[in-house]
Design a binder for these strands. Sequence first.
DNA 1: AGTTAAACCTGGTTGC
DNA 2: TGCAACCAGGTTTAAC
Length: 298
Amino acid sequence: MPELPEVEVTRRTIAPGLHGAVVTEARLGKPLRWPLGCDPQQLAHRTVGLAQRRGKYIWLPLGAPLGGAAGQAGTPGDADADADADADAATGGLLIHLGMSGSLLLSQQPAEAGAHDHFDLVTTRGTLRLHDPRRFGAVVWSPALDREPAARLLAGLGPEPFDAALDAAGFHARLQARRAPIKQVLLSGQAVVGAGNIYACEALHVAGIDPRTPAYRLSRPRAGRLLQAVRDTLARALALGGSTLRDFHDAHGMDGAYQQQAAVYGREGQACPRCAAPVLRIVQGQRATYYCRACQRR
DNA sequence: AGTTAAACCTGGTTGC
DNA sequence: TGCAACCAGGTTTAAC
């Protein structure tokens, strides 16, 4: 479900409603990929900032607790307790990842938490709920984006696809260092973030590039075309409301519309829309790759 | 160092 | 119908 377009759609749907809300309570369900990293009660009384996105992560800024509620904890003279109280009072935020099957829903009257609802952030403007059957997702407290643990999780990410500072030359240069197949390099996010398995396949098809081509072998012009194809593919999916295959819906529960649009992904044996040759399915790095042998070349 | 496999976990689909 | 096998949008960690 969640590649960059889905994550961005989610961010856009939750950001306005949550901005300025005050957290009243946080609840945890079953364990996710990583622990929250703080006591859920520590999230209460904080004001929610404007949700941001980095790669496929959503960053939800949380201000310091209102009303001096913190600071009542420490025993006078106990240095460790004082330090903890200071940490509790500081600003920070939640780094949220949707994993393979996660989705966020912001609602005024949330139903009782189900078996796959693993995190609730109850606020004065509604409850943000993470629903994630496979539990590859995560919600992690971090003092800031550039401090641990967020900094470590974001450390390996390449440039944002829509960052104007990323140009064909820069993208090409990043590919030069990689001998792995271009499909796997796209998935790694080291040259550009955001293309998951579906959009990586689609972008390579748009660019007419064989997914098995070693990344460093792409010429500068072809690298430029691939970067443009990644941008076009992601932008198109974004414009259609995200959605990949089956069960994506935004934070208001609306379905996306990209699912009918795939040219090669999930279409093994069907005709390539461009040249009518049958679409092939191969496995690269334990992930399925779909491509057209006739019009995608090395 | 760079590339590749294994792991995390659940549910839906496919095939015998 | 029952059940095993296989598949799925992602990323970290361990192992060649």
